[in-house]
């Protein structure tokens, strides 16, 4: 325990640097996945075939082992940030897309009828009525995706990607030598702390962005 703490003390700068990179790559992927997933949900939610296809496809992505996906992306995208972000986007799509679809479908038909009856066009209805009402569910999807990708992002070190995965991989590759375990452990704990920090962030975002009328 002492030796672990002193290891962390000696490598604080590295760990913070990698934690920051880890958070950045996850954040980037989540922003992109949110745009894509919400767009996919918006275009398919009221078409039975379309939404089934969207959920099935993005669900299939999730079954690809992360090692395999990252490895297969190397010939296409090389090493580093790009394949990492792409892989994380692929894994984030299902929760966001599916929750967007569910959220939009839960808007009561009477509300859409009222929107149409008062002369709101489709775009205005989507932006002013449907998405705000579906937002709490969409946000839950984004949060699940974030939790998922914080873990998967650790594997990105395999393709020379950024983040705390480097600590873990380094440590595990030097097993037996001094501090190898401590290094891997520091990386792992860093991932957990980051996941908790993201969760806290979402708690705040949820409070700030849920329309007040839905909280009363």
């Amino acid at each position: 325990m002492d030796r672990f703490l002193s290891y962390v003390g000696r490598h604080t700068d590295d760990l913070l640097q990698q934690g920051l990179e880890h958070a950045t790559v996850v954040g980037t992927a989540i922003v992109i996945a949110t745009v894509l997933g919400v767009a996919l949900g918006v275009t398919t939610w009221d078409r039975p075939m379309g939404r089934a296809a969207a959920v099935a496809t993005t669900g299939t992505f999730l079954t690809i082992p992360s090692f395999a996906l990252l490895g297969l992306l190397i010939p296409l995208l090389g090493l580093g940030w790009t394949p990492t972000v792409v892989a994380l986007v692929v894994y984030s799509l299902l929760p966001i897309t599916r929750n967007t679809i569910v959220g939009l479908r839960e808007v009561a038909p009477a509300i859409l009828e009222a929107a149409r009856g008062t002369g709101m066009g489709p775009t205005r209805t989507l932006l002013r009525v449907q998405l705000p009402l579906a937002w709490p569910l969409i946000l839950t999807g984004i949060r699940v995706s974030t939790q998922l990708t914080v873990g998967i992002a650790a594997i990105a070190a395999y393709v020379a990607g950024p983040g705390l995965g480097n600590e873990i991989f380094d440590g595990l590759s030097r097993l037996g030598s001094k501090n190898a375990i401590n290094q891997a452990l520091a990386g792992t704990l860093g991932v957990i702390v980051l996941a908790l920090a993201f969760d806290l962030l979402f708690f705040a975002v949820r409070r700030l962005t849920t329309p007040r009328g839905l909280r009363v």
């Binding site: 009477a110 009828e113 009222a114 929107a115 008062t118 009525v129 009402l133």
Partner: peptide, 29 residues
């Protein structure tokens, strides 16, 4: 759409927008 803004429309299920205040609901059109 413009026509509907000139014709009031009331339905049985009411269809107020739950995320908007009463004032915002009324001010819609």
């Amino acid at each position: 759409h413009e026509l509907r803004r000139r014709i009031g429309y009331v339905i049985q299920q009411i269809g107020l927008f739950p995320h908007m205040s009463i004032a915002d609901n009324v001010a819609l059109v």
